[in-house]
Nucleic acid binder design. Structure first.
Lengths: 212, 212
DNA sequence: GATTTCACCGATAGTACTATCGGTGAAAAT
DNA sequence: ATTTTCACCGATAGTACTATCGGTGAAATC
């Protein structure tokens, strides 16, 4: 505005505008609505200038995946860090759900895009989303193991993974319900998830022991 | 083959071929890959002949939604009927999960298409999928209520709905995991879901009573 | 057996998008 | 002060798809 930017600063600003515009369109209209025409228009430049910043559409999609992945990683690191700080096991278990729920609510568009991509065979983000979901599932299973639900044999290990996958899906569903306004209280969502999880873990506890 | 079909029979056959081809492409490539060119080619007719059977693409999509809805309704009716026949409450509760899991495995493409449509703002099936999911959630909540988990006040009614939504999401996730080969035993999936559900319902039982 | 109907065909106009090209002016380098 | 660089522009060729049109032959009707 007042201070004229240097050329590289101006270019970087335009690039960020493009990414910002693309993420908004991706969230609002889905991958099918993501065209160079719309992105450039939303960013306030000519359609052809899109190619000054990205080699082609694929390039932008790769960058968006990296961008989204970085934000997701950041939220997860924070979640893990805070969950580890909880005083007792019960509170830690509850935090295992409350913190991801809060992370989702901070960047709901990332969850929406991920859920969409995961089931769409034409999506450029499909592999990325599947990979992220698997990583989160394993991380969750490891968290449960850290709470004392040791999985000694193959059967229990598989069950722990199934519980993690089932509870993750439930977490996403309740988070979406919260975002849609159906479940206003996030604490109540965490309560339900904790209860679900503890119920399922009873299956393991009975065979291999666990915390109170 | 040997007997030449009447004109109307032949037309109806071609129409069914088109719907069949469209469903296959929808499952394999998603809504983005669904074009009149591909559908007609897969059905073995010229692209322009597509319009002999459907006014336009929207018309076909409407018909596909009705077609899929009818199959889904059929599976659900069957599931409800069989679940009601179970001898005791525990077995009925378990059937509440095993039967939907089996229904999903009979028509996995319908679940895939529905999950995809539900989160895609550009999908023609989005409203349809959302509606179906809400209907199933309410049906599930009613099933739980029938098992004795009476929800007297508003809080418990909301919690019952949250549990139904969470468990439905978990059911879909485990069914997808089964279809992807990660969880070969469908009975084990039903076990996990039953345990999840019973754990969550403990929240209600403690305040308003319920079965053993 | 003559006429009508119509499912299907090939050709094509119209639409939306991608990606490239040469031109322009202001910032940067000399 | 002059030259170079380059972010951005308008124009446009190329691609993929939708939907319409007139033509054709075999089934249906008379």
């Amino acid at each position: 505005m007042s201070t004229s930017l240097s050329r590289s600063e101006a270019k970087d600003l335009t690039r960020r505008k493009l990414i910002r515009a693309a993420l908004a369109i991706l969230d609002e209209e889905g991958e099918a609505g993501l065209t160079t025409v719309k992105i450039a228009k939303a960013a306030g430049i000519a359609q052809s200038s899109f190619y000054v910043h990205f080699k082609d559409m694929r390039h932008l999609l790769r960058v968006l995946a990296e961008e989204g992945g970085e934000r997701l990683r950041g939220s997860m690191r924070e979640a893990r860090r805070r969950a580890r700080e909880s005083p007792d096991d019960l509170e830690r278990h509850r935090d295992t759900f409350r913190i991801p729920l809060e992370a989702i609510c901070r960047h709901p568009e990332l969850l929406r895009i991920q859920l969409r991509a995961r089931h769409d065979p034409s999506s450029s983000f499909r592999d990325f989303a599947t990979q992220k979901a698997a990583a989160y599932r394993e991380h969750h299973a490891a968290d449960l193991a850290a709470l004392g639900y040791t999985a000694d044999d193959e059967r229990d290990r598989r069950r722990l993974e199934m519980i993690a996958e089932a509870v993750d899906a439930a977490t996403n569903a309740l988070a979406m319900g919260h975002l849609e306004g159906r479940y206003p209280d996030l604490e109540e969502c965490a309560d339900i998830l904790t209860a679900l999880s503890r119920g399922a873990l009873r299956l393991l506890r009975s065979t291999s022991g666990g915390p109170a």
